[in-house]
């Protein structure tokens, strides 16, 4: 039996907005097996990004338990969460979020500064990650000199540079054209299949969700359904 990488029990999260209490997540239970590829779908305001932030240790629940990679995140302090993120999670954002002043290689090398690796080793590891996403030729380019698809591939290279267990992608294809989006989704699928990375991807795009083995539907902060993509489940297995 596959071990669960993510386990949420009775998770609640609410925000105060304009003096009103907004219950974004209302007692959510969810499990994700190690090495799975889940797509998280739902209308705007359904709590997708909030859920992603909780699983990524960027936010804390008001109630409930969030176990990710064997750690109860609610028990960790901010500093401990920072270290935990560095050790276990790679983020891919819709807006790429690369540092514009650094080259592609330097962006990928950046999280590696949190490791005891030497400068030469950091550089070599960053180059391997860029090679994996097919951007060897673009290493010395700054983000402004890259296309949207290339920027997102650099962001994926940065996310995997630390060899994390879990990749959290928040609408990674939202700002890309169809062709570039397909490349990015293929890449995520490849990381899942070949390197065994657990992936949770927020998306509005049903075509993007088809790349995942499971599609989680949220609505009004509640889990509505989980559907399986038999073809992807087989290839995952």
């Amino acid at each position: 039996m596959t071990e669960n990488q993510i386990e949420l029990r009775g998770v609640r999260r609410s925000y105060e907005r304009g003096g009103e209490r907004l219950d974004v997540l209302q007692g959510l239970d969810l499990t994700m097996a190690t090495g799975s590829f889940h797509a998280l779908m739902g209308p705007s305001g359904s709590g997708k990004t909030t859920l992603l932030n909780l699983i990524g240790g960027l936010d804390q629940p008001d109630a409930g338990e969030v176990f990710v990679c064997g750690e109860d995140l609610a028990r960790l302090s901010n500093q401990e969460l920072a270290q935990w993120r560095a050790d276990h999670v790679g983020f891919v954002f819709q807006g790429f979020n690369l540092l514009p002043v650094l080259t592609a290689r330097e962006n990928v090398e950046l999280p590696l500064q949190l490791t005891p690796l030497s400068r030469a080793d950091r550089r070599a590891q960053a180059e391997r990650a860029l090679e994996l996403v097919g951007l060897t030729e673009r290493m010395t380019h700054k983000p402004s000199e890259l296309s949207g698809g290339q920027e997102q591939r650099v962001a994926i290279a940065r996310a995997i540079a630390m060899d994390p267990d879990l990749i959290l992608a928040d609408e990674p294809t939202g700002d890309l054209d169809r062709a570039a989006a397909e490349q990015v989704l293929e890449l995520l699928g490849q990381l899942n299949r070949e390197l065994g990375k657990t992936i949770l991807m927020v998306t509005h795009d049903p075509a993007a969700a088809e790349h995942a083995s499971h599609v989680v539907h949220l609505d009004k902060g509640r889990l509505e359904s989980i559907t399986k993509n038999p073809e992807r489940v087989r290839s995952e297995a």
């Binding site: 990524g56 960027l58 901010n78 500093q79 920072a82 270290q83 935990w84 993120r85 560095a86 050790d87 983020f91 979020n97 690369l98 540092l99 950046l110 999280p111 949190l114 940065r158």
Partner: peptide, 14 residues
């Protein structure tokens, strides 16, 4: 500020 968010998300401390 956005770069600060990126750094923190990656695990860089305050």
């Amino acid at each position: 500020m956005r770069a600060v968010g990126i750094l923190k998300a990656m695990g860089f401390r305050n």
